[in-house]
Simulated assay, not measured.
Amino acid sequence: MTNFNFKIDDNSNVLKFQQLVDTIVDSISRNQLKEGDMLPSVNQIMKECRLSRDTVFKAYAELKRRGVVESVPNRGYFVTQKITKVFLFLDTFKAYKEVLYGSFLKHLPKNISVDLHFHHYNIGVFEKIIFESLGKYSKYIIMNFDHEKVPDIIHKIPDEQLLVIDWKVHAKSEQSAVYQNFGKPVYSCFQQNLERIKKYMHFTFFYPPFTYHPKVAIDYFKKFCTENKIAHSVVFEPEKFVVKEGGLYLLVSDRTLAWFLDQCADKGFEPGREAGVISYNETPMKKYVKNGISVISTDFELMGQKAAEFVTSNEPVQFEVPTTLKLRSSL
């Protein structure tokens, strides 16, 4: 039987059965437990770790469900396959990121374990978590952001193990990327729906101070409006965001969409009639809100799928996920 050391952390918020699962998964990923190795018996774990039989059985049942261990009658539990550990580093957890995350997990085999972290655009957190993760994972899937320290930090990760997703900022040509383009495709989406946009008297891009949305989107917004002789403006201060009759509004967050809808309710405006709106990033609910909110968005389902393919194929990738404008009643 393979030597296996496990200690319960009674102060942890993680359930005891999950602590046992995580420790075994980590041991397999580090080759401390190998294919064919026998795990300690249920009775041994119960005695050494002071766990109930139900807790140990629940942990082993979860490992069997994942396909990484199997039980042999009258013999015990054995490791059946190696586990690949993946580091997934997102900016924030919003509804559309949940779509990406769900798609990523759906397209991975059961023997791949994913640790999810968030940096919230905090460079100190970004640096600390990445440095603490170095050497512990087979693949690193990271959402970069625009900070001068980011290139040096991610350079610590071997290029063949790194995939930059969503925003290609600070990604080098030799580093894999599955990303959306915030510039030209946005312009093209507007151009393809020019007549719908032109029915409004003024087009406003609300870019609040709390957003991290790439500023290149502003450049292409202005380019579209200027070339098509559309009256337009970019509003940065929340107090200057005022919904007016005949106006069309481009919004980068759900918070600003709520502000738009609040003002419409106060003024008796129906989205798509007195005032129009295009919201960034598709979420499951936007098709139902106010008979449908028009959305300009990349395909986060496809982004998650392509990220999973990078993990399973071990091949470098450069893939721009298409951006589309989904027309609904708000435009």
Rank of each mutant, 00 (worst) to 15 (best):
I112Y: 10
Y77T: 07
K85P: 09
E132R: 09
Y121E: 12
Y140K: 12
F89E: 01
F78P: 01
K58M: 02
V56Q: 03
L90Y: 02
I141M: 07
A177P: 01
K128W: 01
I130C: 05
V169Q: 13
I123C: 04
D152C: 04
F104W: 06
N74C: 07
V125N: 09
F118A: 13
I154Y: 15
H107T: 01
K139Q: 12
H117R: 14
S103K: 01
Q175K: 02
K128M: 02
V56L: 03
K149V: 00
E160Y: 07
S176D: 02
V56K: 00
D159M: 08
E148V: 03
A95T: 14
L63P: 03
R75S: 11
I123D: 01
K149R: 15
D115I: 02
L51F: 09
A59I: 06
F126D: 07
P73L: 01
D54T: 00
N111Y: 14
K85A: 12
Y179F: 13
K64V: 04
G135R: 11
Q175D: 06
L116S: 03
I141S: 02
D91Q: 10
A61Y: 13
F57C: 00
I123H: 03
Y77S: 06
T84F: 01
A177S: 11
L108P: 10
S103I: 09
N181I: 05
H155A: 13
I112D: 02
H120V: 03
Y137E: 05
I129Y: 10
I157M: 09
Q161Y: 14
K128Q: 09
S176F: 03
V69M: 01
N144P: 13
A59C: 06
